[in-house]
């Protein structure tokens, strides 16, 4: 499952709307609660865990992708 598919699924948006620049400011459903669900889902799907700081600081799809790649996830 790709990062875009997870983001679109959790935030309930069309995958075509999801870009690396997408974040809470331009996806209305990206609330603080959905942000956590997004992180938890990524942990579940990719079998990894985010640090508190990473959860707090990632504010875009691109930033999520960077964190996932830094953890060795190639599917992102």
């Amino acid at each position: 499952m790709t990062l875009t598919e997870v983001v679109a699924g959790v935030l309930d948006v069309d995958p075509a709307e999801v870009t690396d620049e997408s974040g809470p400011d331009d996806i209305p459903t990206w609330t603080s609660l959905r942000h956590l669900q997004l992180v938890v889902t990524l942990e579940e799907v990719y079998g990894l865990s985010f640090a508190f700081e990473e959860i707090r600081d990632v504010r875009s799809v691109g930033a999520l992708r960077d964190v996932l790649r830094a953890k060795g996830t190639t599917a992102a």
């Binding site: 603080s32 956590l36 938890v40 985010f50 508190f52 959860i55």
Partner: peptide, 15 residues
């Protein structure tokens, strides 16, 4: 349990 869920959103349990 997932510590971040409770810390950031007061969600005490996992999905």
């Amino acid at each position: 349990y997932h510590p971040a869920l409770f810390r950031f959103a007061k969600i005490p349990y996992t999905e």
